[in-house]
Nucleic acid binder design. Structure first.
Lengths: 156, 156
DNA sequence: TATTGTTATACTCTATAACTATA
DNA sequence: TATAGTTATAGAGTATAACAATA
């Protein structure tokens, strides 16, 4: 069997391609995928601790320090005192971050449109359904976790 | 729109998952995905130069030095004099490598079966066809190039 | 002058450990 | 005694530049 006939190979290849493209298009906004992941998790329930964020994104809390530092420097989050634990920070989104998240959503929409361009609406729904079932069977967390820390490609 | 409803997100998530799993299952054979990629390219037309292999796998020739070193140490390839260019090496598979490639194919088959378990035969064909079209439209090289250098996961 | 293989170097990421302040 | 955040350090990976041999 040819390597490129295997669905697992195609999945891996396409997954990396899409992640790279997303990192590239996110870069002009000053974000890496991991930053986007943090902001996304804060969108609904603001005030998560860094440890909670680290668990959600499957990174070590040491890494989360740097990510929150980056976002704080850009004025996208603030470290507020945590109402229930004086050791922790309640990381909160700023208005600027909410604006930026809308731009990031546009980026994602545009990427989805580009990638799925060869498929009609019915086929897109088919693909999404199949991927959903496979992802669920693989036990992948439905929320977030794109395998972060992917930087924009150097040759893009 | 929820993040996990986007096909691009599912693709990225699944792609990384599959690549990680493949790296994990390849590790007991003493190979990383990049090694497997090199061996695969040598399977048909043995005698490629390191530079040719580097181009095919989209890595720098400096990196290929180390990969070929690894494979040579394990007795999977040999550096033969290149018949047409005395600067280059003709990298050739050994019989041991051909045996190992069959084992690696079994690993890939088993992984494909595990990942696609929730789909019946018709759905698997559907998925493969859709992925093929998307990959082709994205301009992904049909041969190889799984976004190599992925190591087995530490927490696997 | 350009290219193949090689080595050395710097830079980035990740992982681990340790420290502080709280709990 | 354990946990949240932080910092420092070491390791692995990648990228760049340079070199010798050959084209």
């Amino acid at each position: 069997m040819q390597l490129d006939d295997r669905s697992v190979f195609l999945l891996s290849q396409l997954g990396h391609h899409v992640a790279d493209r997303f990192a590239d298009e996110l870069a002009p906004l000053g974000l890496r995928p991991a930053h986007f992941g943090v902001l996304t998790h804060l969108r609904d329930g603001s005030g998560l601790s860094q440890q909670q964020l680290a668990d959600l994104l499957r990174v070590h809390r040491n890494v989360m320090v740097g990510l929150v530092d980056d976002l704080e420097t850009q004025g996208l989050v603030r470290r507020a005192p945590h109402p229930e634990d004086r050791r922790a920070h309640a990381v909160q989104l700023t208005g600027k971050a909410r604006t930026l998240l809308r731009e990031a959503a546009t980026v994602a929409d545009r990427l989805e449109e580009t990638v799925l361009a060869p498929l009609d609406d019915g086929e897109r729904a088919q693909l999404a359904a199949l991927l959903h079932r496979v992802a669920e069977h693989a036990g992948l967390p439905p929320g977030v976790h794109p395998a972060l820390n992917r930087r924009p490609s150097r040759r893009g």
